[in-house]
Amino acid sequence: MAIPAELRYTTDHEWARDEGDGTYSVGVTDFAQENLGGVVYVELSAEGTGLAAGGRFGTVESTKSVSEMYAPISGEVVAKNAALDGEPELVNSDPYGAGWMVKIRATASGEFAALMDAAAYEAHVAAGH
């Protein structure tokens, strides 16, 4: 199970990447995609949507279940991954790359740094969460 060192993580198994320009890419982790099973639809908040940290930014339908996804940080959705409309399985095959979901422009400082780092997330998963 991959847990890239450069990303930050939530307890709900979302990841966030600092793009260096005030925006953060967000998706779900390898652990999450494996538990979801085959992803068949991804619904994402529209560009321009304002989100509070912990607010819902999308829904993933898999064969097995439906899961809500929650924003790791507060901000505005400035991009969403349109490729997931036609190829939702990218969430399974490349969760940290082509399976990214939304890009959020942060409106609060310090929230990204407060997320779990890779080591903390690995421990979180190992503890059976």
Partner: peptide, 13 residues
């Protein structure tokens, strides 16, 4: 078991 790691529901189906 609901599914097996490295396989998953769809592959098992």
């Amino acid at each position: 078991p609901v599914q097996y790691q490295g396989r998953g529901l769809v592959a098992e189906h």
